[in-house]
Each structure stands twice: as structure tokens, then as C-alpha cells.
Design a protein around this nucleic acid. Structure first.
Length: 281
DNA sequence: AACGCCTTCAACCGCAATTCG
DNA sequence: CCGAATTGCGGTTGAAGGCGT
């Protein structure tokens, strides 16, 4: 009860986006709010978030609506653990681009910048901390390339199917859309109940069949270097090839000159227990 | 069962970049 | 060109659930 009361904040800050004059809801979204948002977007399309907030009946800021849609409700959002392939890509891209989460997310169809950022902070940085390294340090990068990535590749080889994470079954776009938020209690009405009404809205919005739009965006972004010559995502064997020269792409991001991509594997020294601890994480 | 600590991740915030009138 | 509005991004926070004692 208290939390509900807390979620409704009297707006006393005129600069707070276009917050409604009276009150703005904050905190976790309810099924009803999600339904309203989905319904509105199905009928009117994405964008114009402040108008959406104003006219949809949601007592949320435009910002909040946008975030909820992009990070959670959008049909092509993937749920579940990151696959080894995705983890590998994140490690690769982060070493290349740093904390450019949205840019990295563009290369991972169905994954959001928020998700990747959380992954980095909760898993990668934690690991770096345990090893008493800075997650953006040269030493940690080396550790990642010599221990983590080879292990990920090994894991990918062991489970060659596309769905390699332990509990991740890629949902269809509609499954993704209507998947129940993990925080909601089982007694609450599920969003599926609203599916037919949403889909029968008659609006122009069509649920995408795949993550096409994401790939397209990535392809159109001239700033993003294609991951292979065809502009496709690297396949496992391509990544393995690249890893024969694992530091080739580090370049400027890692201080360039003082790091030699030809570094021999034998130069790499890590105590066994550290290596083991690293992988066990 | 109860408690406290830890981890995860959805959501918020402030600022920067972009778009619009 | 300029200022306001909107959108996007990255950092941070805190609620909720898991887990050990």
C-alpha cells in the first residue's frame, strides 16, 4: 500500500518533462498501464511520446512511456539470458567502443542498451572487481580475451544449436510482447487476455516477424562497421578466426602503441586459480 | 520461519543531441 | 539562426527476489 502511495508523486517541479499538472505515476508499471501503452502504440505508432503520455490516459511522463516500450514491451525484444554468442559479441564490442551501450545494442537484435549495460555492470564489472582489476583496464581486457572468450567459444562448440543459453527459448515476437513481466504476481490478470483486443484495434501497426528493423538500423548506420565483409553478424567460425588475432581491433581504444596485437600466447601469464575463478563466475 | 545480505534489473535522472516552428 | 520541445543516451538507484544462516 505504501509503495503504491509512493508511486504517485505530486508534481511540484514544472521542469519535469511534461508531467501532468496534478500527478505523475512512477515506479513499476502495472499490467493495465502496459495494456494501455501497447494499445495506444498499436493505434498511433511509436514516437511523439509526450503526446502519448498526454492522450493515452497514462499518468506517466513521455520519457517513462518511451523507456517502458523500448526496453520491455516492444515486440521484438528478446527475454532471457544472453547466449554465449551474445556475450562474446558484447565483450568484443565493448573493447572496441567502450560504454556505447546503444551502439552495442544495435549489433544485438532484440537486446536493449539497458540490458547490455546491466549485464556489463552486474557480471563483467563484478568479475573485474573479484580479480582486482579495472573493467576497462588493459589487464582485464587481456584476461577477457585469453580466458573468457575462448571459454565462450568452447561453450558454443559444445552446444552448437542457436539457442545455447541454459534457459533461453527465443519467444516469437508475440510471445515476447505478451510475456508476463517477471515481477508480477501469478494472481494478476495476464496480458494475454488483452491480446485479441489489442490486435483487433485496426491500427496500422504490425508486429514484426523478426528483428529485421534492428538489423536494418544497424546496416544504415554508417558509423557502425559491419562485423564481416557482408555486413552480417560474425558466425562462430569467423569469431574464432578473428580470435587468432584477438587484439587486432583494440587499437586506439586501448592506447594503441603500447599494446602489440602480435603478443604471443606464451606471453600471457595468469595463475591457474585466477583463471579458474574467472571462468567459474 | 525469520532475518539480513546480496544480486539483478526495471525505472529514474540529468544532460546532450536532434528536431521543429 | 534561434529557442523550445522532443528524443536519446549513459549513469545511478532502489524494489524485489534469491540465498544462506
Amino acid at each position: 500500500m505504501e509503495s503504491i502511495r509512493r508511486n504517485v508523486i505530486r508534481s511540484c517541479n514544472n521542469n519535469d518533462d511534461n508531467a501532468a499538472e496534478s500527478e505523475v505515476r512512477r515506479g513499476p508499471w502495472t499490467i493495465e498501464e502496459d495494456t494501455l501503452l501497447i494499445h495506444y502504440i498499436a493505434c498511433h505508432g511509436e514516437g511523439h511520446w509526450n503526446n502519448l503520455a498526454k492522450y493515452s490516459g497514462l499518468k506517466r511522463t513521455g520519457k517513462s512511456c518511451r523507456l517502458r516500450w523500448l526496453n520491455y514491451l516492444k515486440p521484438d525484444i528478446k527475454r532471457g539470458n544472453l547466449t554465449p554468442q551474445e556475450q562474446l559479441l558484447i565483450l568484443e564490442l565493448h573493447s572496441k567502443w567502450g560504454n556505447r551501450w546503444s551502439k552495442i545494442a544495435q549489433q544485438l537484435p532484440g537486446r536493449t542498451d539497458n540490458e547490455i549495460k546491466n549485464y556489463w555492470r552486474t557480471r563483467v564489472e563484478k568479475q573485474a572487481k573479484q580479480l582486482k582489476m579495472e573493467s576497462n583496464s588493459q589487464k582485464f581486457l587481456e584476461t577477457v580475451h585469453h580466458l573468457w572468450i575462448p571459454r565462450l567459444l568452447q561453450k558454443m562448440d559444445q552446444k552448437p544449436s542457436s539457442s545455447t543459453s541454459s534457459n533461453y527459448n527465443p519467444p516469437s515476437s508475440e510471445e515476447a510482447l505478451f510475456q508476463k513481466p517477471c515481477g508480477s504476481s501469478s494472481s494478476e490478470p495476464t496480458i494475454e487476455a488483452n491480446q485479441s483486443s489489442i490486435l483487433s484495434c485496426g491500427g496500422y501497426y504490425q508486429w514484426p516477424e523478426s528483428s529485421e528493423s534492428v538489423s536494418e538500423e544497424a546496416g544504415n548506420n554508417c558509423d557502425v562497421q559491419p562485423l564481416n565483409n557482408n555486413g552480417d553478424f560474425l558466425q562462430v567460425d569467423q569469431l574464432q578466426l578473428q580470435l587468432q588475432h584477438p587484439f587486432s581491433f583494440l587499437g586506439a581504444a586501448c592506447g594503441g602503441a603500447e599494446f602489440d596485437g602480435q603478443m604471443a600466447a606464451s606471453d600471457w601469464v595468469l595463475e591457474d586459480d585466477v583463471a579458474e575463478r574467472f571462468w567459474n563466475f
